[in-house]
């Protein structure tokens, strides 16, 4: 039982890192980025390719799995995304679906549709028994890394000047501009960090989901959206809560009541939305 709980927590932590960037763009900036999963895919590919083709050790690939999607994110944000900050939700949806549709064939074209596996180093495979609970070492590693990231993010957003500026910029772009805050730069940095974290999440998730393949951006899109929906506008802690709830419900649900399966998480999302339609996203979106 505890093993399942632990697996659920680990899965939730992973979802959190994958979706945290989305909770900033969607939850705070009110921008619907359905292409978020594409950045996670890039991160997964970076780790898999560096390991399999260049023999780079797993841990060393992780910074690259963060940096490359982050740079890609900033490049896209500066050239394309920023034009759509004020656009209608429908336009944002269409635009980012368009990006996903382009990203998947590109991945397929260069890397083929076979999943790229990430082979964990020996010290991370295997499991240990702690107080009679069987724990996979890699799951433990995920919990530790993702927990650290969550803590850092929370400190980053709440305690630092940057965090305050981001919240001000999101709250009222014009006022923030008037206060001398460089809104453009703030948004670009937030987007870069979010994309980078997605990439890191993708790299960490590769083993858990059985390798990275071109359909990754779509397969996990809905899961990301649910995390952000449940977490809502409550920033990092909200997303963490949403991710953990989802992770545990999903793992436990699939184990105990396989006949219902994914139904639970979709149900949780719809109920949350019906109960708190406006509170769900930062400032609601009018109408």
């Amino acid at each position: 039982m505890l093993t399942i709980l632990f697996d659920g927590v680990a899965y939730g932590m992973l979802l959190f890192v994958l979706a945290s960037g989305l909770s900033v763009t969607l939850g705070l900036m009110n921008f619907i980025n359905l292409a978020h999963g594409a950045f996670a895919m890039v991160g997964g590919y970076v780790t898999a390719l560096l390991m399999n083709r260049a023999g780079v050790p797993f841990l060393v690939t992780l910074p690259a799995a963060f940096l490359i999607p982050a740079i890609l994110g900033v490049a896209l944000e500066r050239t394309l995304y920023r034009r759509l900050y004020g656009a209608s939700p429908l336009d944002q949806v269409l635009f980012t679906i368009g990006l996903v549709l382009m990203a998947m064939p590109i991945a397929d074209f260069f890397l083929g549709d076979e999943p790229q596996q990430v082979n964990l180093p020996a010290w991370l495979s295997g499991s240990a028994t702690v107080y009679g609970v069987g724990i996979s070492l890699y799951r433990l590693f995920i919990v530790a890394v993702c927990g650290a990231i969550a803590a850092l993010l929370q400190i980053f957003l709440v305690r630092t000047r940057f965090g305050a500026q981001l919240r001000a910029a999101v709250d009222d772009t014009r006022v923030a501009d008037g206060l001398g805050i460089n809104v453009d730069r703030i948004f670009a940095v937030a987007f870069a960090v979010g994309s980078g974290l997605a990439g890191l999440g993708g790299a960490l998730a590769a083993d858990v989901v059985g390798g990275i393949d071109p359909s990754f951006p779509v397969k996990f899109l809905v899961t990301f959206l649910i995390v952000v929906t449940i977490g809502g506008a409550n920033g990092i802690l909200g997303a963490l809560f949403g991710a953990l709830l989802l992770g545990v419900l999903d793992v436990a649900g699939k184990y105990y009541v396989p006949s219902i399966g994914g139904f639970i998480i979709y149900g949780v999302m719809v109920v949350t939305l019906v109960l708190r339609p406006q509170g769900m996203f930062a400032r609601g979106d009018g109408r």
Binding site: I32, S88, G267, Q278
Partner: peptide, 22 residues
């Protein structure tokens, strides 16, 4: 009826996913 476009996108998506799972 409640909420904005974003909420509607998510609710309709959620309903269709639930039905598919069903």
């Amino acid at each position: 009826l409640r909420g904005g476009d974003l909420t509607r996108l998510m609710v309709t998506l959620g309903v269709s996913l639930m039905l598919g799972e069903l």
